[in-house]
Design a protein around this nucleic acid. Structure first.
Lengths: 346, 346
DNA sequence: ACCGAGAATGAACACGTTTTCACTTCGCGT
DNA sequence: ACGCGAAGTGAAAACGTGTTCATTCTCGGT
């Protein structure tokens, strides 16, 4: 493969395909970007030859002129965190199907701002950014990404401070926590559960704030006293220690709402293996997320779930729409939660 | 920012920096790629102005001329799989520190070849590829990636069929399974355990083959009869069902070697919650990997571990070396395993 | 004051596309 | 036969950088 098209650097170029097919290089470009007119038989010939030569338009060159890299930056504090790994997994599949690819970055695990990382990521020119940084305001984020379209991922209700007069300033995915939490509280109420404790996640994170707030609202609406709050950080180990502390030093509880499934596992293990209590007979436990492990027999956790695939579909829809119409008004989609009843309650 | 440097598309260009600093555009390029000579004060001025303008060399343009994208393709069947998510996490951090970024792709979950995906990934021109595709030979993989340098990730011993006369044909990371497995078998032998069962992973996967083979070798060397083999696929659910089947229909066992930690969890849960057996009193269980959940109280798993961070360091070292010296002879590094003793044995 | 070597500099080209803009060809109605 | 839009075509200009090569500058030694 070195007679006239030099096959430099190992990849075929549009020039070679053109020569082989007796067409101009422009025709080759047109064959791949269908929106301009080109005689059908010609396109067919070009595509066949391209296939033969294993040719694909070079993405760097394409990005240079079009300004689109087809990369979606994903910033995440911890890939191992089960919920997030599930989301990354689904997201990668979905983006792949739409001609994009996931560009993964890791940030500090406290959900806070990381200017250094953001600048670094910006250098790769992602077309859009999905940030798992719950403590950062969108307006702060957007200042560091001039060209990219940021989608700020979080779970709570719309945040008034980030809204303009005519609605939200940025595309947003909202999760209405009400449904699942209300079902859970109703279920507990049915068992005459009295002392309900909320084990928090990372205190300042938006999802944690939203979950606690909604829990208070729901309990008040049902005529229950507000829950006691124990500080956690979404991790197994902290939940484990906090639970022991709650029962050894504190007043104990009849039911514990954990801010996510992983910390619910910590709660359950502390109750059973350290405190000698039974779940659900002595203490009932509810989690958030419904990750894959929640149905494992050792835990069999009752938890507040929302549909992951639905969420990812919505997210990809938002991203694609924004890329096609950069100046369209900000959009938001709303998802709902529901309760998955398993063995840790009832 | 539109007086002469037009700030097109939102990003500053080298041209603008040059104009602002009264230098030629070439000088700006030199200031960023230090290997050519440039008056120090000039470089300083340029870098200062660049910072002011928030300028970074465009990676697409840079890739176009240099042929380097600084992207490392990572192909993985399942991001949620805990061991792999841990590896992706560590890898992303390490690559980030070296000026690269992780480009994530998802493939079929049976570890087999996926030409479609490979062609798709090739389109993004990654500088190197890390593939979690244990059923695919490196030689097959390399056929689909003309320019990229593939690193084939697997756990077993060197595979003779992929070696040339003067050693291995490709860079490789080998894991010597012997240490941890031998310790585990010795421990079981100490308890006079007789009927040992190996619960396989995905049957054709290299890591599974290597683990089973080494288990046989070690047991033979210690004068034990070969283990019975039960078919699994690395998943919790399959392990759960297979264990029930083993005890209800089959002969049962005194100890079960699970091919990874997740399936060990499935084994434990089936024994305790479905078959009413005690672990470790009635049946002992050993896993592979030592993922984060293995120390959780519900499982407290004894398992064969090797150092993840050491592994990732070695991997990154291999990649960087290959990028700097594309024609250097193939290199291999070897890692060792050890046993982490917890509650499921003894 | 002069020469020469090495450092510093900038013009021009290369990288592989997409897009614009004239130009040619084609088919069809009068 | 003529004209006239529409469809098809290719030359040339971007896109933003790295690199080569010839030129200019600097400075120490005679």
């Amino acid at each position: 493969m070195d007679k006239d098209g030099q096959m430099a650097r190992g990849r075929a170029t549009a020039e070679m395909v053109a020569r082989q097919a007796n067409v101009s290089r422009v025709a080759v470009s047109r064959a791949f970007n269908s929106h301009t007119s080109l005689k059908p038989e010609k396109r067919e010939l070009i595509l066949r030859i391209a296939q033969e030569l294993n040719y694909t338009p070079d993405r760097a060159a394409r990005a240079l002129v079009s300004g689109r890299t087809h990369l979606i930056g994903v910033i995440v504090p911890d890939v191992c965190s089960y919920w997030e790994s599930q989301e990354i997994d689904a997201l990668t599949t979905a983006l792949q199907n739409e001609g994009f690819a996931t560009l993964l970055f890791k940030t500090r695990s406290d959900f806070s701002m990381d200017e250094k990382l953001l600048a670094y990521m910006r250098g790769f020119n992602p077309d859009s950014v999905i940030a798992f940084m719950e403590n950062v305001r969108p307006s702060t984020l957007v200042r560091f990404l001039d060209r990219a379209v940021p989608i700020y991922v979080h779970y709570p209700h719309p945040d008034a401070e980030d809204d303009g007069e005519d609605g939200p300033l940025y595309d947003r995915l909202n999760v209405l926590q009400h449904g699942g939490i209300d079902q859970a509280v109703a279920l507990l109420q049915g068992y005459n559960t009295r002392r309900i404790v909320y084990l928090s996640g990372a205190v300042k994170s938006r999802s944690n704030v939203a979950r606690e707030k909604m829990l208070r609202t729901v309990m008040a609406a049902r005529g229950l006293p507000p829950p006691r709050v124990v500080i956690g950080d979404y991790s197994y180990d902290t939940a484990y220690a906090a639970t022991i502390d709650l029962f050894r030093v504190g007043d104990g509880a009849d039911a514990i709402f954990a801010s996510n499934d992983v910390s619910a596992f910590g709660v359950i293990d502390a109750l059973r293996h350290e405190l000698g209590l039974r779940v659900p007979e002595d203490v009932k436990v509810v989690g958030f997320d419904d990750i894959a492990q929640s149905h494992w027999k050792s835990y069999d956790l009752t938890t507040v779930k929302f549909d992951l695939s639905e969420r990812v579909r919505a997210l990809v829809r938002l991203i694609l729409r924004r890329l096609n119409e950069p100046d369209a008004p900000a959009l938001q989609e709303t998802l709902h939660t529901s309760l998955v009843v398993r063995g840790t309650v009832g």
